[in-house]
Design a protein around this nucleic acid. Structure first.
Lengths: 359, 359
DNA sequence: CCTCCTAATGGAAACGTTTCCACCTATATC
DNA sequence: GATATAGGTGGAAACGTTTCCATTAGGAGG
């Protein structure tokens, strides 16, 4: 049982030509009952499977799609990848996964590799779409592709959360709850256009409501010294009452650090996260956040690619405002109104903003 | 720019035979400086890449390894996959990922697919090793493989946490903290040999310390009615003071439900989880748990496979006790000793049980 | 000038499929 | 009984590589 059996072995054993075997097994073209049986028997005996490699060479199609994401340790991408993978599998495609660790060089290398592997399409999240060598290569080759979590340049299809609009929404929420002085807590600003857009949207939203521009707390590490940095930050900006974290993990870390500093969340400081990861609702206080649906985005990206491949009609992209929804939580508390006093500020029940359907 | 350039196109453009192109580009065999330059120029002009498909057919090797896990929505598997993927990439291999959603049929189908795709090796987590059609197929074909998170049958290599020993350890810890009446909180017992082993180990450990056998709280869903079930469970077993959850998510869910029932954790009920996910340390109280290192396991599995493929020496499997370590946390509180009163029961600083090195 | 050796090169087979085309054999039709 | 027709069938080319082998050219040594 050294090497796997090939179609030739089957043909020999069944006493026919390879063409007949192919026809029988693929159900293409005619075959007598006798031959069919003999072939099937030979297949059984030899435990034969078609080699996809040979097939791919002949059909110049690999039934494989590539997926490039920063890291699946981040549950947002993990969920998206899983969603994408399921759709692929359903359609008989397999997924080649490469994680780039938020590294631009890796991105390029990954995409190069996938092109060499002749994948039929690529789903990708890059650090900066406007400036991505790999993405350019894909476009130049006209390879079916869909961006994931990157807002697309003109004419490109992309399955992404509208970070900008979502961040504006966060500003709206802070405003509606009478928070006037806020901060934005991010990490690694330059390498991700997403973080940038979240900050910009937030700043814009604050400006629109004539709130003070958000103070920026930028750290290089989520680790323990965050507590010190947060402390210094809050001392520098003593009137901050609301903090927008660039993702839920960061929000959780902020809550932990606040606790260590004996700062009450949400009593002294309200916190809003981004992503809507599962654990956000399991902790106390529950995390107010921008809820997104990574699975849906991933699945959508797959469907887009599959439709590009087989020429069917592509799925409709969700409206930008449908890619996220604000989810209330215990980490956000309304502040007593200073001057004006409308009823808005009291409670923020989760039923008010029910999750938007994505598809 | 219809089809991608092939080696023939390059040869034609460079005015030489395909063999020369191959030699130049692969650095195998001699070539004159003149030819080398011409070939390189042609490659640049045509933007040529080797087709891995053609290569695979010729070399009967795909430089691809398959990975089959239940779900990467579970961060334990996500981390393991990522670790495995990194090692593969480093070695110039790519990873084909299939998630089976804890479904035995999917497992078989996934493995069949990977075999047809001619992967050079497979990393896999199955529901039940003793009874896995897919795993049998792999063994029959003598395909390089490594189990991940499944304890291996005789002679098989496997990168897994020793669930049984870890569960015994949990019993030890409960005992050392004077908890005599405990429960085990699991889900979907039958489909996973891992959950089973955790329960058995725990029961065994309890028996060894002459504690009451653990009561079993089995639910079919992590959702909201967990609270009701937990309530009923604790009413049925009023003297339970310690609960061992089959994984950290479950532990978190239990804490949340306890809070809803006004049961103080750890004052009224101590909880220990399993896995050591990141958020366990970000919440309050921090989660006492069995800490594992999924990344390391995944990376190890990859290394094992790579060594099988190229015949180098395989990495040493960690000792069973090195695959996990108990991590203390605020969700576990020592109980006042009833009869005997040794000093053991007071605090349980995390430094006492320092994480074991895995590699 | 002839021979020998080495370096450079190209042709062709092989890898495992699919598919086109040609062939053969019955059976039906005249 | 000859001819058309259809259903079965096998041979061979093609897909893009690598590599063995044969060939050529060119220089060194006699």
């Amino acid at each position: 049982m050294g090497q796997a059996a090939t179609i030739k072995d089957v043909a020999q054993r069944a006493g026919c030509g390879v063409a007949t075997v192919s026809r029988v097994l693929n159900g293409t073209g005619p075959a007598s009952t006798k031959m069919r049986e003999k072939v099937l028997a030979a297949v059984k005996e030899l435990d034969f499977y078609f080699s996809e490699v040979g097939r791919s060479l002949q059909s110049s199609t690999t039934r494989t799609i590539g997926c490039v994401v920063p890291s699946i340790e981040n549950p947002v991408y993990a969920d998206a990848v899983q969603g994408a993978q399921e759709v692929c599998l359903e359609a008989g495609y397999q997924m080649l996964l490469i994680c780039t660790n938020y590294n631009a060089e890796m991105e390029t290398h990954a995409i190069r590799t996938l092109i060499a592997k002749q994948v039929d399409g690529i789903i990708l999240t890059v650090g900066d779409v406007q400036n991505s060598e790999g993405f350019e290569m894909i476009r130049a080759r006209k390879l079916p592709h869909s961006l994931l979590y990157n807002t697309a340049p003109e004419g490109q299809t992309s399955w992404a959360v509208d970070d900008h609009a979502a961040a504006v929404k966060v500003a709206d929420v802070f405003f509606a709850n009478n928070h006037k002085h806020t901060g934005f807590f991010g990490l690694d600003f330059l390498s991700s256009d997403r973080a940038r857009q979240r900050f910009e949207g937030f700043a814009e939203g604050c400006a629109h409501h004539k709130m003070t521009p958000p103070a920026l707390l930028e750290v290089d590490d989520d680790g323990d010294d965050l507590t010190l940095q947060l402390d210094a930050f809050l001392k520098r900006h003593p009137n901050i009452t609301g903090l927008f974290a660039s993702n839920d993990y960061r929000a959780l870390a902020a809550i932990r650090s606040a606790r260590q500093l004996s700062i009450d969340v949400p009593g002294d400081l309200s916190i809003i996260g981004f992503d809507g990861i599962k654990v956000g609702q399991m902790i106390d206080p529950t995390l107010a956040t921008i809820a997104t649906s990574p699975r849906t985005l991933g699945a959508g990206a797959s469907q887009t690619i599959l439709s590009m491949i087989n020429g069917s009609t592509p799925p409709i992209l969700p409206h930008k405002e449908q890619t996220f929804s604000f989810r209330a939580g215990g980490s956000l508390m309304p502040l007593a109104a200073e001057s004006k006093d409308d009823g808005k500020v009291t409670a923020f029940p989760s039923s008010t903003t029910k999750p938007t359907r994505l598809l």
